[in-house]
Amino acid sequence: MTNNIKMADGTTITYDFYPKRGAKIILLLHGNGGSRHYFEQQLQIYRTNLQVLVPDSRGHGGSTNTQSKLTFMQIVNDIHTLLLTLKIEKVIIVGFSDGANLAMLFTKHFPNMVEKLVLNAGNINLQGVRLSGLLVDYVAYFMLKIFSLLFTSLRRVAQQKQLLVQSPKMSWEDLAQISVPTLVVAGSLDIIKKQHTKQIAANIPDSNLRIVPGVGHTFGAKFPIRFAIMVMDFIQE
């Protein structure tokens, strides 16, 4: 069930794959600093009707990173290589946080491989993050960057945090080119600004917006069954 694949640069990508003959494939992309295990409590719902593919992003979980930096495009290209290797032509993508950013970026570069999108708490630029959260990210990144010069064990976490102070290379015009049905989800207490989430939905032509009252950034982890049912309802529409 758990497998590894080597990228051209020697990086190892770890992933779980749950096959189901003839079923559509859902690709689950976790957030910054997380791993494929973020979705564990949701899997029982998805596996009922779908094949499920859950990778650890480069430099996260069981996946390595042979490069000195970590970028969104590296991870997007890893996902593309993984799908080609597994001979998967089309996927439904569910992305959480940085995973949602990766889902949008992947759709920009490989639109023909995407059937539907679920974007949970994503942002296309740093202006979409509440100032309090952004300040924490910057402080954490710079502190880790400094200490990683002394302690090599911190370099991996510093690379992960670097993604939090990078803008995914997406524009509002890029979102307007997304032609697949899309569900945009965020909590009313999310660290992503509510107006930014609304703008993402407004710029994707075929999109639905759900702002969930009383929940924060990790809606899918705190209420996994509720989140997964919402996703399945959208997929089956």
Rank of each mutant, 00 (worst) to 15 (best):
Gly61His: 02
Gly61Phe: 03
Gly62Pro: 00
Ser63His: 01
Asn65His: 00
Thr66Tyr: 07
Lys69His: 11
Leu70Tyr: 10
Phe72Gln: 01
Met73Leu: 12
Gln74Ala: 04
Ile75Lys: 03
Asn77Gln: 15
Asp78Phe: 00
His80Thr: 02
Leu83Asn: 03
Leu84Asp: 06
Thr85Asp: 14
Val91Met: 12
Ile92Asp: 07
Ile92Glu: 06
Ile93Met: 05
Val94Phe: 06
Gly95Tyr: 03
Phe96Val: 07
Ser97Met: 12
Asp98Trp: 02
Asp98Pro: 06
Gly99Asp: 05
Asn101His: 09
Asn101Met: 14
Leu102Asp: 07
Met104His: 11
His109Ser: 08
Asn112Asp: 13
Asn112Ser: 10
Met113Thr: 05
Lys116Leu: 08
Leu117Arg: 00
Val118Asp: 08
Leu119Asp: 03
Leu119Arg: 05
Ala121Arg: 10
Ala121Ile: 03
Ala121Cys: 14
Gly122Asp: 08
Asn123Asp: 01
Ile124Gly: 02
Asn125Gly: 10
Gly128Arg: 02
Gly128His: 04
Val129Gln: 05
Val129Cys: 01
Arg130Ile: 09
Arg130His: 13
Leu135Ala: 01
Val136Met: 06
Tyr138Leu: 08
Val139Asp: 03
Ala140Trp: 03
Tyr141Ser: 05
Tyr141Lys: 07
Phe142Tyr: 15
Leu144Arg: 04
Leu144Gly: 01
Ile146Glu: 14
Leu149Gly: 15
Thr152Trp: 15
Thr152Lys: 15
Leu154Tyr: 15
Leu154Ser: 14
Arg156Thr: 15
Arg156Met: 15
